[in-house]
Design a protein around this nucleic acid. Sequence first.
DNA 1: CTGAAAGCGCTAACAG
DNA 2: CTGTTAGCGCTTTCAG
Lengths: 329, 329
Amino acid sequence: MTITIRDVARRAHVSVATVSRALSSPDLVRPDTRSRVLAAATELGYQPNRAARGLITGKTGNIGIVVPDLDNPFFTGILKAVQTRAAQADYAVFVADSDEDPVAEAKLVRAMAKQVDGLLLCSPGVTDPQIVLAADTAPLVLLNHRLAGVPSTVMDGADGLRQVVAHLVALGHSRIAYLTGPRTAWANSERRRGLAAAVADHRVDLVELGPFAPRYEGGLQAADLALAADVTAIMAYNDVMALGVLARLRDRGVSVPDDVSVTGFDDLTYASLTAPALTTVAMPLATAGRTAVNMLLDWLDTTGEPAPHITLPTQIIVRGTTAPPPGGA
Amino acid sequence: MTITIRDVARRAHVSVATVSRALSSPDLVRPDTRSRVLAAATELGYQPNRAARGLITGKTGNIGIVVPDLDNPFFTGILKAVQTRAAQADYAVFVADSDEDPVAEAKLVRAMAKQVDGLLLCSPGVTDPQIVLAADTAPLVLLNHRLAGVPSTVMDGADGLRQVVAHLVALGHSRIAYLTGPRTAWANSERRRGLAAAVADHRVDLVELGPFAPRYEGGLQAADLALAADVTAIMAYNDVMALGVLARLRDRGVSVPDDVSVTGFDDLTYASLTAPALTTVAMPLATAGRTAVNMLLDWLDTTGEPAPHITLPTQIIVRGTTAPPPGGA
DNA sequence: CTGAAAGCGCTAACAG
DNA sequence: CTGTTAGCGCTTTCAG
């Protein structure tokens, strides 16, 4: 039923070897032979079996990406760019959603490892030893996580948060809450690093709350705690959490930004749709996805080179949820 | 480097055939032989090569899903459930984003077809002839699109829109706009069908506008047209579009729901975060994704049976963007 | 430049 | 119950 290289060979009156060459290394066959083969192939609607090819070349033409939550637009923003770039390079992409579960993650990585040429790991929660283990299984590129020896593409969250603090201080805030994300998340440590630096520079009181789940519900929970901490500004770990904060504040009759300022992180499309619109930090998701794929593809035919690292800049986007504190600046 | 079935065989002092059997049909080997093999396999960290297995069994253990836009939470909601259910059944999933381009879609389907056991098509824009063509390439299940002869899982959009009209009529609206989505989308025709029925039942004036892009920008554009049409209620094709409508109305100083009511479709998480929260129709995304995978898996080892179709119920979610029209009910 | 032949890692008859 | 053997569809030496 399914048509193979032999069918093409027969139709073009050549050997299977010639068909193979005509398709993969066109310059190894005489032009007219090649065109005869190509013609036969299209007439028959021939599609090479990638699995069979992979068996011998050791290349599958697939890459995999594991993300912690496909419901979070942050990760799908990356995924979209990854898919697009991969398709251009004629790679297919496997997705796996670990549901924020490190154990599931490790399992998924192992399962995928055999059927891909390389893996993109976009999992805040994964630990360094796990990564080292995974890197043994398949070529790996880390997204938003940095580790010596493993190539990585990261977005500069530390600087993003530094910009946020500077913005808030400029508005006159002096007591600010930071809603911490998952403690094990590399991105979270990064942001706290930026935060510590910014706080030292500006002499503001920082109240660190959490950790909270980096989701809507986490924000709901965090809002009450932040309010009790008597701050005039709340910096959430990410936009989704900030939306939860906003919703909870609205329910409690607290006005944003008049009573309290709120900031997010990620600049998700939907975050700008709140009223007032959310002040946040734009993350170059598409660039990151594209860059990570490029890096992985390069990494595949590289040996002995040191692992590349790239840091993409982030940018605060000031909108309506930040204003001077109630008492005036 | 990579360890094969032979290594396991050697270590367990059996033939490769026995190893193969111990792994795939455990009851065909004596218990103690089996445990010896299993032990050897785990000691060596053996992972069968799925491609090689697939070459002979004709099964890849992969399924593919094509969606028009990974940035739209509607599709990723489905994708998440698909991924989860597939993983449970020990299938890996390929994603492809067609970017709403029918040509790209066809290409993606063809490219994936060879390396999957079956395909989920979740593409509003694909035409029936294209589907028939695709169904020839690989076992197919349609998501939110119905076509005789091809299994499908759909969500009852017609009934959803009927519920919306009934809700609006009950509030006292008599002149309502519907913002049409892509003309070729099956879901759109379905909704228009429900709409026509509801309109006939309730004797309301229906103004059909569009088609618009089913995105935020489409809503921005549609809002002005709807306002000019002098309606008291606007039903958007989906939530994302409704968010665009809301934003544009806010910018123009039109109050929702006092001046005009707005409804969405899909019940995306982020849609409930507008102020006021969006009245919309809940779609059983997770159920649909899960069901579609189950259907595909069943369909794979089925022959001659008629193609199953399932329709999942939808439910209007009344929130804050709908109210009686300005003049009173 | 082209063909014949030897596998890639695995499973499926077919014998024992 | 287990081993031997023959491929799945393809690429890649190695000879012509």
